[in-house]
Design a binder for these strands. Structure first.
Lengths: 319, 319
DNA sequence: AGCGTCGCAGAAATCGATTTCAGCGTCAAG
DNA sequence: CTTGACGCTGAAATCGATTTCTGCGACGCT
């Protein structure tokens, strides 16, 4: 791995001049050519580590997500990546597995690696991002808003989506609409359920026994759906608050041969890789990719010196 | 962001001593306590950038994959992560989008960030990993073997899997078995098709018109399946060489109402998030997670100084 | 001619850690 | 009492880039 000193020696100039050539500062054309040739010949790549140390900042962005196996987050990652790459930044993905400890560790890494910024879909409700914001390192929260921290945030309309999905089920003629949502300590889960509950009450229903908290994963959806089916008075429709739990719920319905038995399903977020014949599932679209793109754009603005007070953007539930 | 100098000043010792305390070198107990207290008080996190520069190596591993939206690769990522985290390494994911240019860029980054090692599912057949191996930075290829490069490699038995899937279709009574495989310049695609072709010939079939190359994605599977159905003599079974194309193929069958019309499907690799009632799809399991775990373990051995000649491990097609 | 300005380039400082080297003190052995 | 070994510690070098500071030469203006 050649260094800038070797390039300088080969070109017969000082390392300072090599650096200037590489960074487009004014240098005489002859020296510039000498340097470029030398760099070419040694196939020189500047050490990002050294540069980061000196500049106190790198050109990589950390994207911290709770579940890399959830297509919602990977679609978001694609959005972030496209925008960031176009601006010359690289994106590294950090998978927290919904574990605040792992999350904290990755945030530490991001700080001590001098990363340019962080896009965070936080695992819990609390995230210690002060360390970053205090140092002027921008942080954008996406999908989930950390409590009590003032950072840019990109969200979807969870309550509205919950309402829309539930209303759609009523309008299809269902009368008892249950809800399978995520963990009670996750804000998105609470909000989606709130949209459901509000709608149920408005129609004179009793939400109580028909609300289930699960883990936002396939297995959780399965268990919750089984429980609902086992109720004395089972629901005839279910609003499921994310894509993976919808898969789980549908699996249970299929396995019980009830897929076409009139139990309606509405999913918050597209089903991953749908292969089903359209059996009348309502989908509230979740613009995962746009979420990522928007977050990335906001982060880049901050990196480029935007000092406005923190903003919150709520995307509508369209693809 | 406090530095080691501030900790040293607060503790009344030299930075060298602080470093020694933090790295467990022999230091008198009193000073050790002073240092630990000071570090605690300032909530000091050592700069990984500075450490990497000095040590010429960091504790992060790059995992370079072609498609982050493919559950096969994310499952693999989980395997890598579990093993790496347990050994104190962090994993960053790099998504190349099957683009050799992006791949080269990420390999550059890995080198110039002094990453500890690289696990690479290469986009094309060629990958320029010499830069790394020459510098003693370990590289493990996974799922796909870069041509003409001597590195540790973890593969699955593609030919055997192709054979097994095809045989299963014949044994279910199908007589014309087609094949949808990946791009012709990807070795795994060629090998899986080779297993199919061999089996077809052994049964007296004519492979020729029934082989389709697509892009290993849902859309490619759809197009290829449509083409096969439009043949003068369409097949009555199809071996599909990866999970996403299987989804595409199944979508087409469902949309045409042919799902139950006797066209058999065998998929190389589990279907993502299956919600179908079991309609008799044959699956050749692909141990994605074990692939990742194995690769990570091999990489860690190399990082820890293993100097044996490169090995190739072929995992059997079991979960 | 003299003076100020400007462009270019090298020497040296800097970022924050690790590590070598050297010094100091203590203790044991001769 | 001297010598050697050993343990602990700090000073200083180091990693490889960027950037400030400084100097030099050319040029223009009065």
């Amino acid at each position: 791995m050649p260094t800038i000193y070797e390039v300088a020696a080969l070109a017969g100039v000082s390392p300072a001049t090599v650096s200037r050539v590489l960074n487009g500062v004014n240098v005489s054309p002859e020296k510039a050519r000498l340097v470029r040739d030398a760099a070419e010949q040694l196939s020189f790549t500047p050490s990002r580590t050294a540069r980061s140390l000196r500049m106190q900042s790198s050109v990589v962005i950390a994207l911290v997500i709770p579940d890399i196996e959830n297509p919602f987050f990977t679609a978001m990652a694609r959005g972030v990546e496209d925008v960031a790459q176009a601006a010359g930044y690289s994106v590294v993905l950090c998978n927290t597995d919904d574990d605040p400890v792992k999350e904290a560790r990755y945030l530490d890494i991001a700080a001590s690696e001098n990363m340019a910024g962080i896009i965070l879909a936080t695992a819990g409700d609390q995230a210690d991002v002060d360390r970053h914001t205090e140092r002027g390192r921008p942080v954008v929260a996406v999908d989930r808003a950390p409590l009590g921290v003032e950072v840019d945030t990109v969200l979807v309309d969870n309550i509205g989506g919950g309402r829309a999905a539930t209303t759609a089920l009523y309008e299809r003629g269902h009368s008892i609409v249950a809800c399978i949502t995520g963990p009670a300590d996750v804000a998105t889960a609470r909000e989606r359920a709130a949209g459901w509950e509000e709608t149920v009450r408005a129609r004179g229903g009793i939400p109580g026994p028909y609300l289930r908290h699960a883990d936002f994963r396939v297995g959780g959806g399965r268990r919750a759906m089984s429980e609902l089916l086992a109720l004395p008075v089972p629901p005839d429709a279910v609003f499921v608050a994310n894509n993976l739990m919808s898969v789980g719920a549908l699996q249970v319905l299929f396995e019980n041969g009830r897929a076409t038995a009139g139990i309606g399903i509405a999913s918050f977020g597209d089903l991953p890789f749908p292969t089903l014949a359209p059996i009348g599932i309502s989908i509230v679209p979740l613009p995962a990719r746009r979420l990522g793109e928007t977050a990335a754009r906001m982060l880049l603005e901050r990196i480029n010196g935007d000092e406005e007070p923190p903003r919150t953007v709520v995307l509508s539930n369209e693809r």
